[in-house]
Write a protein that binds this DNA or RNA. Sequence first.
DNA 1: TAGCGCAACGTTACGGGTAACTCAACGGAA
DNA 2: TTCCGTTGAGTTACCCGTAACGTTGCGCTA
Lengths: 345, 345
Amino acid sequence: MAEKSHKNNKVSLSQVANAAGVSKMTASRVLRGEGGYSEKTRDLVMHQVDRLGYLPNRLAAVFAGDKTSTFIGVSIPDLGNEVFAQVLEGIDHKLGSFGHQTVLGLTQHTEKEEEDWIHTVLSWQPAGLILTGRFHSTRATEMLRNSGLPIVEIWDLNSSPLDMSVGINHFDAGFDMGRFLVGCGYRNIGYVGTSHDTANAATTRLAGFVKAVTGGGGEVTKQLCLHDTAAYYPGYYGTEQLLTSTPTLDCVFYQNDAMAFGGMQYCAAKGLKVPGDIGIAGWGDLPIAAVLPRRLTSMHVPHLRLGQTAAEMMMSRLSGEPVQPVKDIGFQLIPGSTVKNVGLR
Amino acid sequence: MAEKSHKNNKVSLSQVANAAGVSKMTASRVLRGEGGYSEKTRDLVMHQVDRLGYLPNRLAAVFAGDKTSTFIGVSIPDLGNEVFAQVLEGIDHKLGSFGHQTVLGLTQHTEKEEEDWIHTVLSWQPAGLILTGRFHSTRATEMLRNSGLPIVEIWDLNSSPLDMSVGINHFDAGFDMGRFLVGCGYRNIGYVGTSHDTANAATTRLAGFVKAVTGGGGEVTKQLCLHDTAAYYPGYYGTEQLLTSTPTLDCVFYQNDAMAFGGMQYCAAKGLKVPGDIGIAGWGDLPIAAVLPRRLTSMHVPHLRLGQTAAEMMMSRLSGEPVQPVKDIGFQLIPGSTVKNVGLR
DNA sequence: TAGCGCAACGTTACGGGTAACTCAACGGAA
DNA sequence: TTCCGTTGAGTTACCCGTAACGTTGCGCTA
């Protein structure tokens, strides 16, 4: 099986055609199943395909047809954050079901890395790009515009997107959480997150949060932005830092549930009661929340669906259907019971 | 900026060359920086590259050079399992640092899906493939062999790999855990996992586990394999099912730490003391373990490093360096304190 | 000043498919 | 019988780069 060509060990279409005694074009037609050949010819060709172990060369097909590939470039900050793992899972499954492939790029939240990645990925003639966040470098924006490709900006909703956007308004979400916590009676609130990058949705969220808290008569007394991943242990030691430097805090808001859980564990280790001594609020309503004895105060965002929706918007645009370019996927505050419910408002 | 060609809106090398008043070949040389041109010519060409917003077409380059691309196909079962998210993160970072791209495939643990995905990915002329697991369908194996590409099988160490393999011996790891638990005095042990697929490493692990337990005079009384993801909540309700049907168990072994944590939460909710009333052992030493009050009995596997190593082996092979084809990345039992330590052996 | 070498650049021929066109054979209607 | 449409298949040009070679023109040597 699998007689190889001399050059590169790959069986080409012409080899199949020769072996079947037909022209390259006829073999091509059979393989694409677009008709215009007899049953007998089809069998001849397919038999040789099996015998030689022919694999189509989609790269050459794209090239010949002067079309784009079925690649979709997907840039994600990192996978240590469960949120993005879920988003990616949603994207890849949906893309896969449409016969498209994910070309991954972990761009670590930096514009420069994203820019380099975009340059590389565009050179592979992708069918479209899905990017996390709405801030891109000038050169990146220019390349994206010039490419003329469909682009979905996800996560941080962009009301005037390059092309399309799906996500939530993080400012509003942060604001809602802030208003809720102030409504619970908290006035002296801390924050633990992992980045102060202005391009980061978490920063936008924090801004909305701060606005709501100060507007409601409270104060975000201390904001901690660690140089680490938004995971359990940073939540733990971040809380330690926070409460050591500012013991007067009555509540802590975290960048996500993993960090919040880490914070809860710190509190438990130090004998601090939640919510008796201190309130805890997370973000994302991650799977771990489902098994905790006490419902974690959090903000539900449909991450998997967000990913799926992004992929669907991409597919719609590629098939020429009309697409609503900006989709707010929505969020829902989970009051939970890791904050006191003094029932204000 | 960005004057477009009539056809497909992309600026080609000849357009750049024409605009710069040089031949296509000279422009190509400048862009690849391989010398054979004057400084003046270089500036002329690069100026037009900027002005026209030219993006190289790597697809055409691969095609012309009759080479493979810089794509590496990476198949991962799913990202809901943090273990694989970490592995993927390790792979993509390392590949990226070598100028290669990950083409992702979430193949959901099934051979059929993997086979289809392999067929598709191979048609894009990748430079190599990284596959999770060592079991592949016959047709998949045949395609992989015929491709002649470098292949790294990860996770479940394959001592006679298609090409290369890195991971751990799950049978041995399961065996060690079983021996340890029996050594702790447990005799009536339950298991909660998510799959009975023979192609699954978890199944291999379980086999080793069972062998050690029965060999040590204990019994794996009940094995529960849920049709779900290996996450917190399945761990919770799986434990509920397990302990309801078999209340006599003295210990439960889980497919991973997330499930184990879910199980611990179930126990806590029901007033069962860990390890007083029941022992709990997880697998993977996931990040959450770092913040728990009680060290979770688990098995440490360097997931991130596993991913990085897989990528490094791939890069070594591609650059023609000699590669040790089978690498056991090792594991380490974390005794923890969620099991009794009766101090046997 | 012929002869030579080399830097700098141009020409040509692919590579593996596909679009668009052409052509032959055949069957049915006029 | 003639004409024409349909079916099945072949031909040709082209997609965008690169390898391999060919061609200049200049400076230097003998």
